[in-house]
Design a protein around this nucleic acid. Sequence first.
DNA 1: TCTGTAGCTGAACGTTTGTTCATGTGAACT
DNA 2: AGTTCACATGAACAAACGTTCAGCTACAGA
Lengths: 193, 193
Amino acid sequence: MNKRSATESKSKIINAAIKVFSENGYKGTSMRMIASTASISVGGLYLYFANKEDLYLTLIKEAYDELTRKVTNARNEAGSSSEALSLFISHYINTARKNRELILIQGREHKFAFGMDIKRKFFRDQKNIIEGIIQQGITSGEFSGCNVKETSKIIFCVLRGFILSLIVEPDALFSPEECSNLILNGLLKGKQK
Amino acid sequence: MNKRSATESKSKIINAAIKVFSENGYKGTSMRMIASTASISVGGLYLYFANKEDLYLTLIKEAYDELTRKVTNARNEAGSSSEALSLFISHYINTARKNRELILIQGREHKFAFGMDIKRKFFRDQKNIIEGIIQQGITSGEFSGCNVKETSKIIFCVLRGFILSLIVEPDALFSPEECSNLILNGLLKGKQK
DNA sequence: TCTGTAGCTGAACGTTTGTTCATGTGAACT
DNA sequence: AGTTCACATGAACAAACGTTCAGCTACAGA
């Protein structure tokens, strides 16, 4: 193994790319900016990534995989449906907060279609999980009957709005508990508090 | 007045700019793209706008003003607080839908700070309106006591998520009625349906 | 018909972009 | 000490960028 380590250089590049892409978006980021942030030469970038697009896609792919992995676990940890939903929401919000830098990238996209297949899959997965939780809650009599698809869209939009706030207006962020509380009291058959 | 009308050319440019900026973002849009979409020469753009930034800011300023104008009206039209909130939500969602192209632009921003003062003012205004409605509902005994600031943040995030959906995933959109229903049943003291 | 001028053009300029490649460097082997 | 080769460099290239400006066109009023 060389002292000038390849893996070390690659991770230096990845970290620099996250930072620079997050701050300037795809089009707003030049390979030279990434190179200088990583303290490496322009040409050096091309030793590890085929081109700018390859480097970018590597980043957002990893970001989504991580978020998905953590959030899907929430489902198995809960007893009741309300607890499942609350856990889902708090997992989602907390991981989003923690991975803020990675998520910032998606707010600065250069084209609609770019990496869209990765995102669509992610969105579909998330919405399916929410739908599953609501459906089960209705079946078990815990939630009042409602339009499952429509309701899960709304819940998903709250979370999506949270993500957008993360990007544009950090002081608009709310707590997971308050969020679950508002949503659940609209879902639960018997009013409680 | 010349047959080669200045006002007509200017509006041709604005329409073209909305279209091209929406599809490609700020950095992704070149003055040549706007010019050719507007069927005008590159140089012609600079007869009406000082530079690229000036042209862009003109667009988003108008977009926000329009949305604000329409939404603020909702407040005066309602009798009860629940009706006020429902009206606010449906006005917001419907105007957002109608002005989709204009709003798309904000999803493709090139830098955080760019035009951010305009946006922040808009966000503050919107949240104040929601807070006002909730506060009034609590005072009148229509809504159950809750953390006003936190709750209005969540409601605002639903709408913000709706906007983001408008950009990235049009089939994730929900109806204003269903949204009001979910939120209100969490707010109303007595459960109803 | 001629003239003044508002409206418009597109070649040209200086930068910056993504990418390439001939060249250099240094740790790990014999 | 010599050889090797993974790792690294940055000048160079073509393409695209925002912006300028000398010159054109077409209309209004004389």
